[in-house]
Design a protein around this nucleic acid. Sequence first.
DNA 1: GGCTGGAATGAAAGCGCTTGCAGGCAGGGT
DNA 2: ACCCTGCCTGCAAGCGCTTTCATTCCAGCC
Lengths: 342, 342
Amino acid sequence: MPRSTPNPRLADVARAAGVSLATASRALSEPEMVREDTRARVEEAAAMLGYVPHGAARALATSRTRTIGAVFPPVDNPIFAGATHALAQELAAAGYTLLLASYDYGLDEELAAVRALVGRGADGMVLVGMDHRPETLAILERAGVPWEITWSLDESGRQHCIGFSHRGASIRITQHLLDLGHREFAVIAGDTKRNDRARERLAGVKDALAARGLKLPAKRVVEVDFSVANGRAGFAKLLERAPGFTAVIGGNDPLAIGALFECRDRGIEVPGQMSVAGFDDIELAGELSPGLTTVRVPSAEIGREAGRRLFARLAGKVVPTIRELPAPLIVRGTTGPPPRRP
Amino acid sequence: MPRSTPNPRLADVARAAGVSLATASRALSEPEMVREDTRARVEEAAAMLGYVPHGAARALATSRTRTIGAVFPPVDNPIFAGATHALAQELAAAGYTLLLASYDYGLDEELAAVRALVGRGADGMVLVGMDHRPETLAILERAGVPWEITWSLDESGRQHCIGFSHRGASIRITQHLLDLGHREFAVIAGDTKRNDRARERLAGVKDALAARGLKLPAKRVVEVDFSVANGRAGFAKLLERAPGFTAVIGGNDPLAIGALFECRDRGIEVPGQMSVAGFDDIELAGELSPGLTTVRVPSAEIGREAGRRLFARLAGKVVPTIRELPAPLIVRGTTGPPPRRP
DNA sequence: GGCTGGAATGAAAGCGCTTGCAGGCAGGGT
DNA sequence: ACCCTGCCTGCAAGCGCTTTCATTCCAGCC
């Protein structure tokens, strides 16, 4: 259908208020440059006509879109939903809008998404993790778009990032199990090829064990995509392939919960016969009984803070390159001392 | 830092290819209008220079942004993550981008988000549910932006929508419990004031009971925000306020799972003493043992289909106003016949 | 009352792209 | 050979806004 009234343009507002285009523009975008009464007249006219500024025109004139792009992997899903939401809220509060893209199948898809978002004029960009095509970063660099790495930390200090040390958190959780007396470990890891967080988490376990002179045999590690079902299957496979471990660490909470369920179904007592730990602290972790020992990941804060840092940088402020957030170990009931005789 | 090379513009590409601006434009956007060899030359030049079209300029000239807006409530979160992802993927495949906003505190926030997205030039809009400020729809109408209602169905047939009948699904689940022999029901509902899906789900239970001449006493209904913790608390409250029911229906899966956990902690056997049913079929529902009886909500398909319908309408095609998707009852182990003597 | 200077306003030039229109050129019919 | 028909290509006019620069206005002062 043809619109009865085409959307009013700034020129219409100016005419209605009896001022020039330039004045109307200033009245709306730089109020302090305009005399009080004319500003009021313009605002009134705008309200009356239901004027909505034309974003593309403004973007063309200012080369700013007031838009931030974000490219998320969906794989380890629920935890990203919170970050996305927090980011969107933070942006909205500052008059910005979120351009969101997500990728399923790896870094080329991410590259394409970044290209599209830069083309759409994103003023800043939020990426997840440290694994990216060099070209992806080159595009951002060239376009002069500041970006923030989230979740992971760039230890080299070259890129702006906000997150926490996955390796460090993983070491803490392993330490906790070592302190309880465990010596035989197994890990249900995420996809370490496509996911640096999963990689670092696994590495953290190995590091902590190595520090006590212990090793994690390859047989005691399975690598699967994040899901409860895969947690179950992974645990079953470990049990079959290399039984005798007394503690299993999941690459994230759904995997750990899968392992937990598998224990329950097989009559393996937790934590009496088997300790189980996760990573992320999703809501469910605290509601199980016994509750799942895990690491609390500050996902909402990562989203919020990524937005704030980007704003600050766009405003020309200098922010510390690395922002590390706490990721505390949450000890609950699924971890305890190993059984006397395994 | 000053960019060493400013981003190339179409004029640079044209010059490099030895053609006019107009031809370069057509070579990239309407290949069939241009001779094969010139097109090749232009493409080569574009690739060489790393040309990225300037979205705002294009949008200004065409009054199309190739962007779709979506405004989601985060409340019942995990289920929306899937839909968002599917929508983003669908859009990306068609060269579109997702402008995402989410709201926490009700419809005025949604209105502001829609205003912002329309200002950013969204070509189409995805909304959730039937509850909106009249002004929200008026803005879309006026701007000529087609929108799709998702999750709910507009029975009046006035608005384009894709989803399923929450009431119908809720009736089926109640029916199933009635058929098993249950007569005393309780419901842990979502927030019916701010959420038409929660409202319809509750209404469905009442309808199904009424059809058999049964009533759902007010004491047997608690209303809470969606979460596992609230499921636990809600169930505890029901037990205290009006015990004697043999089946409890959760407004969504997390609520039902909360009830389930509470049963387990209190030593109430499921389904021996208490049947529990949910709504959504999140991954966990199928991994519990016994598995949770629930309704499978096609959330990814809703996201995908919303995108497709919008594309079709933008291309001038006519699509059926209402698209209803199946939401099958998934019977698992948490529902069974009521105990002989409650 | 004329002058000065700062504040408020207006005129107009873009921002980078698309697209209607007109011109150029090759090939076919006569 | 000449004209006409189509197909490609180029010119130039916007799309709706911001922003520089020039102009006008007004208050205050000598």
